[in-house]
């Protein structure tokens, strides 16, 4: 069964084809990848999605060596995201559905991050899934495919946003997450003890307070001392900030694993590429005797491969949609009950 996946919920326009066992193509049109057509895609523009979506889908078909007639269903991101951007993908998918006479399948973008782990591996269920990115920080209990129960969520900033904004405060260009990750590998995480927020309270996260503590840390120093710290201890500062964020993520993840009594854990979303997080997660998984799955980094950021795979799972359960499929900006998950 061949599934075409289409993603347009935020910055990236993407298309991919999955056959139930292998990913046949995966195309992302963004400023980072200079694809042949369309030139530079202005970031964030729903009008830019419109300009490149056809070529992106065509490229996915070409790369897969697939004919439009061979596609069995079209999976598309239905939310959450920017309404204008979502509408572009959704209308395009519905148009294809009519033209090809094939069903459309609406896919939740956050759920799809979890299924990115199934592209190159077969994670066991039930599992705990941590979806951590620039826009999301959520812990789910996944008892069976497509069953996602929310255990924890951020009360303010997403973990990726904390990395990006705090990095800017210490002089790194925004978004600073990847730079902090890189510098932290050479630093001492014990250099400064930033607070680990909400360590005792349930499974929710709060990363806003960390911004303020970094701000005060910088402000309490005299200008020359601040300059010295930022030049001589940049690596240590990045390591200390990363430690504060990743400690909380791992602590809550471990707690969720124990609470739900699962043997399998998935970490997905853009921040799952962070090396300190990966290292701590691997150590925690070994200690707890659980199997850890983190998707290949190219499937961690926004992509259509994860949409195609999730669409395939939905097709197995006969969960098809029709022309009434509507986008949504927000989504409420069912809460986990012990």
């Amino acid at each position: 069964m061949l599934i075409l996946g289409i993603e347009s919920s935020c910055d990236e326009t993407a298309a991919a084809i999955y056959d139930g066992a292998r990913l046949l193509s995966n195309v992302v049109a963004s400023q980072k990848d200079h694809i042949e057509f369309g030139g530079i895609v202005p970031e964030l523009a729903s009008r830019a999605h419109e300009r490149v979506i056809w070529e992106t889908v065509q490229q996915a078909l070409d790369d897969a060596g697939a004919d439009a007639g061979e596609i069995d269903a079209i999976a598309v991101t239905e939310g959450p995201g920017l309404m204008g951007s979502l509408l572009v993908g959704l209308c395009f998918a519905k148009g294809l559905s009519v033209q090809w006479n094939k069903p459309v399948i609406g896919v939740n973008h956050i759920d799809a991050h979890i299924y990115a782990a199934f592209i190159d591996a077969k994670p066991k269920l039930p599992a705990i899934a941590l979806v951590v990115s620039g826009g999301h920080t959520q812990i789910f209990h996944v008892p069976s495919p497509l069953n996602h129960l929310l255990m924890g969520n951020t009360r303010d900033d997403a973990a990726g946003e904390a990395f990006d904004k705090i990095g800017k405060m210490i002089g790194l260009p925004y978004p600073a997450g990847p730079a902090i990750d890189q510098l932290a590998t050479h630093g001492n995480p014990g250099f400064y003890d930033f607070p680990r927020a909400m360590m005792k309270k349930g499974l929710d996260f709060s990363f806003s307070g960390l911004k303020t503590s970094v701000l005060y840390f910088l402000e309490k120093m005299k200008p020359e001392e601040k300059e010295r710290v930022l030049s001589d201890h940049m690596n240590d500062l990045c390591a200390s900030i990363s430690a504060a964020i990743t400690d909380v993520l791992i602590y809550k993840l471990q707690r969720a694993i124990k609470q739900a009594g699962v043997k399998s854990v998935i970490i997905a979303g853009g921040v799952s590429a962070n090396r300190m997080l990966r290292r701590k997660a691997a150590e925690m998984a070994e200690k707890q005797g659980v199997e850890l799955h983190i998707p290949n980094p190219e499937y961690c950021t926004d992509n259509a491969a994860m949409i195609a795979v999730t669409g395939w799972f939905k097709a197995q359960q006969g969960l098809y949609d029709d022309e009434r499929l509507k986008p949504y900006a927000r989504h409420q998950w069912e809460k986990y009950q012990k």
Binding site: C10, L44, P80, G81, L82, M83, S133, G134, G135, H136, N153, T154, R155, D156, D157, A158, G160, E161, D164, K165, Y174, S208, A329, R330
Partner: peptide, 28 residues
């Protein structure tokens, strides 16, 4: 409790009698 920072998404919409649009132009 549902209100989170909209920096990444730019716009968060909350449904109510009068809808709330929480915008963040930090990334623009």
């Amino acid at each position: 409790e549902e209100v989170q920072s909209p920096t990444f998404a730019i716009i968060h919409e909350y449904a109510s009698d009068v809808p709330l649009y929480h915008l963040d132009c930090y990334r623009l």
